[in-house]
Write a protein that binds this DNA or RNA. Structure first.
Lengths: 207, 207
DNA sequence: TTGCTTGTTGGACGATCGTATAACAAGTGA
DNA sequence: TCACTTGTTATACGATCGTCCAACAAGCAA
């Protein structure tokens, strides 16, 4: 007779990915305080020791999850940009609208992000990651605004305003999901764009 | 000879206030994960047992701190409203502008708020407190917008947009203090108000 | 001064935390 | 079939967590 294996070996990259995704799920479900080594390992279906084996410490796993989650958002935004076509104004609108559609508008992702924010104060490496990610996000917005013909002295403030509005809508959607829908959030953000940019897109119709 | 007292008795309300303020300082300094009973008690200069004596559990203390912090913000906003005079439009502008001036713009207060947000997922009592506070905040905004003559079918979205923008600016100010100043945040929020309200107030002059 | 109320202390308790490590077993090549 | 490598498990360890409680003492009344 043959016993089935007690566990299955996995490729290192596979296992890392699995642990990172389990960490993200735990952060979304239980918040930062619930993301313990044992909880994450249970979520991933492995033994607690594997976290130390692959990441050294749970802090490193959380930081890796932060980077992975940020990369997911960047990829989704980049995809939205290429799908929007060549028109700069359409690209900008797609950039903002995509923030309120899956996979970015995923409530689990928003909750995960809040968990990261709560770690910024205590962890300097997380703070550094946030600074670069926020700088990249705003630089992308500035480039899009410039392509739309927004004067240079207005680009900075407009980028800050757009990113703040999007972050705030994200936040309330996550904290009080019943307050308003993601469709409403998207409409509000688009209206904000209209107000910030006097130049109208080529495909402008009605609003 | 006379030994000085080993400790000093305090009025119950005084002691509660002291513990709440110590809890807020710890939340701002170390985040939600650093707000342990012993850390808070050390910050307040008392023994750890006092937390249980006055609040029953550390969770109740955190919830009380949330309520106290929210009340502080409400009081500051109310003061800004009365100082703004009778004109509805001036009241609305003061309401938003005050969000980026002390004591609301205090970085410690913002950090404390983030700590609360990180607890919303895991703690239903904190979530309930957030829902009521957010509903109150938005109801105030709706009343101000209505007084400014904004049509009823636009009040809801405008209130959501304003609160989201303010929250987002708060957030980035706390996470990356070097990104922009509170003066810039205030200017951005005021520009947002101008864009949202097409109806001009009676005392409108220039902009 | 003496006695009493009770705010306050400081440590005990079990649970859970992150980390380290010895023992085990899955998969591979000889 | 049989080592051998190493991914994986399970446990041990000290530290810290929240909660609880018996003892102490500050301040007031008599």
């Amino acid at each position: 007779m043959s016993n089935k294996p007690a566990f299955k070996r996995a490729e290192p990259d596979e296992r890392r990915q699995s642990l990172i995704e389990a960490c993200a799920r735990v952060l979304a479900r239980a918040g930062a305080s619930g993301a313990s080594v044992r909880t994450i390992a249970l979520e991933a279906g492995v033994s607690p020791g594997l976290v130390g084996h692959y990441f050294g410490s749970v802090d490193a796993l959380v930081a890796a999850t932060y980077g992975h989650t940020g990369a997911r958002v960047d990829a989704a935004l980049a995809a939205a940009l290429t799908a929007a076509g060549p028109d700069p104004r359409a690209k900008l609108e797609a950039f903002v609208t995509a923030s309120f559609l899956p996979p970015i508008a995923d409530p689990q992702l928003l909750a995960t992000w809040i968990a990261f924010w709560s770690l910024v104060r205590a962890r300097s490496d997380i703070a550094a990651q946030h600074d670069t990610q926020y700088a990249n996000f705003r630089a992308r917005l500035v480039a899009l605004l410039a392509a739309c013909g927004l004067p240079g002295d207005q680009q900075r403030r407009a980028a800050i305003a757009i990113s703040a509005l999007v972050d705030g809508l994200w936040l309330e959607l996550c904290l009080s999901p019943g307050s308003f829908s993601s469709d409403e959030a998207s409409a509000i953000a688009r209206a904000q764009l209209d107000a910030l940019i006097s130049t109208r897109p080529a495909t402008w119709k009605d609003r």
